[in-house]
Nucleic acid binder design. Structure first.
Lengths: 117, 117
DNA sequence: AAATCATTTCGTATATTTGCGAAATACAAA
DNA sequence: TTTGTATTTCGCAAATATACGAAATGATTT
């Protein structure tokens, strides 16, 4: 084994998605949106949640950045919904993670192979 | 609907567990330990990971706090392994979360019911 | 062009997280 | 009791996360 190792893409992805899920407001939003074909406007959400508009906007931005939701501009609103493709990816990753279906030997790799990304 | 709402236990639990999973080092540790009956000493892990002993200790503490691992003292080592009961709980919660098996109506509840906990 | 509405960005404050090395702790063996 | 080994805690610094209200943005309607 090489001395200096980096995490594989799968490990980094799991950590990144988990981070997006690490706040109750974001869990709530995702649960609501993931209900079959459900979409929401920011204004709908702010009325249900115990936070201000600007703070909600930050949470939505984080979920977008993580790829878990997407926003469609429907002036004067923005309609949010789940990014289905990435949602399925998250589903698969977590299922493998929690069921021990990932190869331990694939959790780390030599730095060299990542340096040039 | 009441004016002031709180998140349900399920939402808070999902966020809390996700937070514990939100760092690559902790994902790595869990993946390694979750392999059937696998246990590790802190010293084993520090040799594989690109972090110092004290930092690793912090990550282990967080995973313990989240209830995902447990440490058994085997002098002069501490043997870490998965907390199977809580691991199964996490599995169940994430499976429901990702498959839309949680009732949206159960995501929030009135503050009163939580105040006296 | 001005007014309006939903949403985001900015500025600020505070709290938490992550990391390291040094010091402290816990335990067993000499 | 002293020594040695494994691990954790402490003190510090830097980075990130969370929250709010005020101001800015984008697009439509008047």
């Amino acid at each position: 084994m090489s001395d200096k190792l980096e995490f594989t893409q799968e490990v980094l992805e799991l950590a990144r998605i988990s981070k997006a899920l690490s706040h109750p407001v974001r869990i709530y939003i995702l649960l609501k949106l993931s209900k079959m074909d459900s979409c929401c406007y920011s204004g709908d959400l702010v009325e249900e949640l115990p936070i201000g508009r600007s703070t909600l906007s930050r949470h939505l931005k984080e979920l977008k950045y993580a790829g878990l939701i997407q926003g469609e501009i429907k002036p004067p609103y923005i309609k949010y919904c789940i990014n289905r493709k990435n949602w399925e990816r998250a589903k698969k990753l977590f299922a493998c993670f929690l069921d021990n279906d990932l190869q331990v030997s694939n959790l780390l790799q030599e730095t060299e192979s990542l340096i040039h990304l």
